[in-house]
Amino acid sequence: MTPAPFTYYRPTSVADAISLLTEHGDEAKLIAGGHSLLPIMKLRFAAPEVLIDLGGIDDLDHIRVEGDEIAIGALARHVDLELSDLLRAEAPLLAHTAGVVGDCQIRHRGTFGGSVAHGDPSADLPASLMALRGTIVVEGPGGRRSIAVDDFYTGFLETALEPDELVVELRVPRVGDAPWGYQKFRRRGIDWAIVGVAYQSEPGAGGIGLVNMGPTTLRASASEAALRSGASHDEVAALAAEGTSPVGDGAGSSEYRRHLARVLLSRALAGRSTT
């Protein structure tokens, strides 16, 4: 079904995109790969008056080393992350996670920045960004600022982005071959995760991100604290659902989701990943 009508802009620079955002404010939606927005526009659940297509900006899809970090342009597509030799070597959790998003066609269109900015708690990539303690670089009329991933998600489909800001880059530390695991539990290959767990080990510690365990992407703080105190993996996994508030729906009751979080964390800690 065709979306409701809108005014379409195709800026060719970030600066132009920001001035359009400033001009149109809440009436405007950004579109990059379009795989979060177009599906709901087709069903007319969303009908923005103005659509600002970032597809005309051609210098925002980099994946490169910058000091101790990997810098990834917001318009890098999931497939670019998935198949990046650099990312596979320096932050393999993120490359793997990009490869379990949606299907090939979706990964050919969807962008890392779009997935992060959408703020959907059932998305995979934000959980791995959480496990990696990444930062989100945003740009607005006043220039750029960096937001830690822990400060970025403020509510269901809500982020710390101002209406006139857009995500321009994602940064994660270079972790090399340190152990990691990504568990995405779903009935069918194309389903969103019923629950997902991202784990990235750190010296004497570890980062753990949770998918679909509350209104936002969550950090498993109790488990992380247990890891730092030297607890066994079983003890760490047992705390996976502490402080979470998963919803119950047809795919899983909240009790089932809490149970899954514990089981999946145990598997992720063992370095096991789902494909």
């Binding site: 539990f185 009935r187 019923i194 795919a251 899983g252 009751s253 089932y256 149970h259």
Partner: peptide
């Protein structure tokens, strides 16, 4: 036989 039904 969804996973949740079996688990339940």
């Amino acid at each position: 036989l969804t996973p949740m039904r079996v688990w339940q």
